[in-house]
Simulated assay, not measured.
Amino acid sequence: MYDYKISILGIRGLPAKHGGFETFAEKLSLYLVERGWDITVYCQEQGSGDVYETEWQGVTRIHIPVSREGAAGTIIFDWKATCHALKQQGLFLTLGYNTACFNLMQRLNGQTNVINMDGIEWRRDKWGLVAKTWFWLNERAGCWIGNHLVADHPKIKDHLATRVRAEKVTMIPYGGDEVLSADAALLEPYALSPNDYSVIIARPEPENSFLEMVRSFSCKVRHHKLVVLGNFTPQGNAFHRAVMDAASEEVIFPGAIYEAPVVQALRFYARFYLHGHRVGGTNPSLVEALGAGCAVIAHDNHFNRWVAGEGAAYFENEAACEGLFDQLLNDTSRQLAMKEASKARFHERFTWPQVLQEYEQLLQDWYPSTLNK
């Protein structure tokens, strides 16, 4: 058993409720607790009042109330969490670089901080000039301030290597759970049956190719359904309305679904999982699709190709996506081959035991520099 202490910053808290980094932090925390580590996680709370502590499944949670909401609230929380961390001992793991400039205080305090640099946030279409500048500056700051960096994709490591020496970066991808079964009854409220639909699961943003995929599916009758998860409403922004206007009657918009068993069932029983992300590293949703044995149709870029492998089908543009629907929707043998390829790729690189063992080894390697703190 080990006697190591680590504090995790950069997430909203545990248990996981908000996305990929929270899920990863939960998996890593519980894994390290079982391995004898002393784990502290900072948690953002809505409201006001003093900082307080609780324990959750062996993890110490430091709760920091913040009265502001949205991005401003997150920045305030990160500032307060970093200030609190200055009084802590051991090693630090920061997930994301969005407020990496704050971590300079830890570096000046002599604390050792490993930073997971996430994706290339400043390249995302959804951000305006001010936000892109903030992310670009903080990416630079994180590269300089972090004692060591983690990239979740080989291309992210290559990108970071243009900022720092390559040996300062370790590539460890995101992990996922293998899904061998799911409750088909959970499809019934959406009038769906196994294999009679395909699914898109992503944030409803232009860079995730929603409009291209929906238009290419909707250009003709498919005798098949396309389920588009996400908070699309006719009263939404112009992009949301454009996607919904482009949809045929065979496209279903059930809204955002947060119940994990329902999302798991939607993936597991889908004929195809569509992944339109154009920017990012190892995307959690794509990894989860591989773990569910989905046949994957993805946007053709080096991020998706490394994750999904050669067994997936790729489209460069709307016309190519339409062609894939024409070719694959009724090709049962190809669908089965793609599903098997997804399972093989998942086991090759993305199981949680692989990922968590690699993280523990990296954290152990960096722990000695904190022994005198």
Results as ranks from 00 to 15, higher is better:
Gly281Thr: 10
Ala292His: 00
Gly280Tyr: 12
Ala298Asn: 10
Arg305Ala: 11
His299Asn: 11
Leu290Glu: 01
His299Asp: 01
Val287Ser: 01
Val279Met: 09
Trp306Ile: 13
Val296Met: 06
Leu274Ala: 06
Val296Phe: 05
Arg278Ile: 10
Leu286Ile: 12
Ala308Phe: 03
Val307Leu: 08
Ala289Gly: 04
His275Arg: 04
Gly293Leu: 04
Gly276Met: 07
Arg305Trp: 07
His277Val: 09
His302Leu: 11
Pro284Ile: 01
Gly280Trp: 13
Leu274Pro: 09
Val296Lys: 03
Arg278Val: 14
Ala308Asn: 06
His299Met: 05
Ala295Asp: 08
Gly276Ala: 07
Gly276Asn: 07
Ala295Pro: 09
Leu274Lys: 06
His275Glu: 05
Asn301Val: 09
His277Ser: 15
Pro284Cys: 02
His299Ala: 14
Cys294Ile: 09
Asn301Ile: 13
Pro284Gln: 02
Arg305Ser: 08
Ile297Lys: 03
Ala298Arg: 07
Val287Glu: 01
Val296Asn: 04
Gly281Asn: 08
Glu310Val: 06
Asp300Ile: 02
Tyr273Asn: 09
Asn283Arg: 13
Val279Leu: 14
Leu286His: 10
Val287Arg: 00
Thr282Gly: 05
His302Tyr: 12
Glu310His: 08
Trp306Met: 09
Ala289Asp: 00
Pro284Trp: 01
